[in-house]
Simulated scan of single mutants.
Amino acid sequence: MAANAHEAKMAHPRMAAGALFFDAADRILMVEPTYKDYWDIPGGYVETGESPLHAAVREVREELGITPPIGRLLAVDWAPNEAEGDKVLYLFDGGQLSQDHLAQITLQPDELKGFSFLPAEQVAERTIPRLARRILAATEARTHTAPVYLEHGQKPDSRAA
Rank of each mutant, 00 (worst) to 15 (best):
I41N: 03
G49L: 12
V76T: 14
S51E: 07
H54C: 05
V60K: 02
E59N: 13
G43R: 05
L73T: 02
P42V: 11
A56V: 04
I70M: 06
P69M: 04
V60Q: 01
P52N: 09
G71Q: 06
H54R: 12
P69L: 05
V46Y: 11
G49W: 11
I66C: 10
P42E: 03
N81Y: 02
N81E: 14
A55W: 04
E63R: 01
A56L: 04
D40W: 14
I66Q: 08
V76A: 09
I66N: 10
E50R: 09
G49T: 04
E50Q: 15
T48L: 14
I66W: 07
H54N: 15
D77T: 05
P69E: 14
T67L: 02
V46N: 10
H54M: 12
A56R: 05
P80W: 04
A75Y: 03
A79W: 02
W78D: 13
A79E: 10
A75Q: 08
I66R: 05
S51K: 11
A75M: 10
D77G: 13
H54G: 08
W78M: 03
E63N: 02
E59Q: 15
V76P: 02
L73V: 01
V76C: 11
V46Q: 10
A75G: 12
P69N: 12
A55K: 05
V57N: 04
E47M: 14
V60P: 01
L53M: 13
L73Y: 00
W78T: 02
G65C: 11
E63A: 03
V76E: 14
D77Q: 08
I70R: 05
D77S: 12
N81D: 15
G71C: 09
A55T: 05
R72E: 06
R61P: 00
G71D: 06
R58G: 02
L73G: 11
V46T: 13
I66Y: 10
I70D: 07
P52I: 02
G43S: 07
A56C: 12
H54V: 01
L73D: 09
A55I: 04
P52L: 04
P69C: 03
V60F: 00
L64Y: 05
L64I: 06
A56G: 07
I41S: 03
V76D: 00
E62T: 01
T48M: 13
S51D: 05
P52A: 08
V60C: 12
V76I: 15
G65E: 09
P68D: 02
V76H: 00
P42M: 04
R58M: 06
V60S: 07
D40P: 00
R58K: 12
T48D: 15
S51F: 03
E63T: 00
G49I: 03
E63H: 02
W78L: 12
T67H: 01
G49C: 10
A79L: 13
H54E: 14
D77H: 07
L74H: 06
W78I: 07
A75N: 11
L53I: 11
E47A: 15
V60Y: 00
E47Y: 09
S51Q: 07
A56W: 00
E50D: 10
D40L: 06
R61F: 09
A75W: 02
G71W: 01
L73A: 10
L64T: 07
V76M: 15
G65W: 06
G49Y: 11
I66D: 08
P69R: 13
I41Y: 04
A75C: 13
V46S: 12
A79H: 11
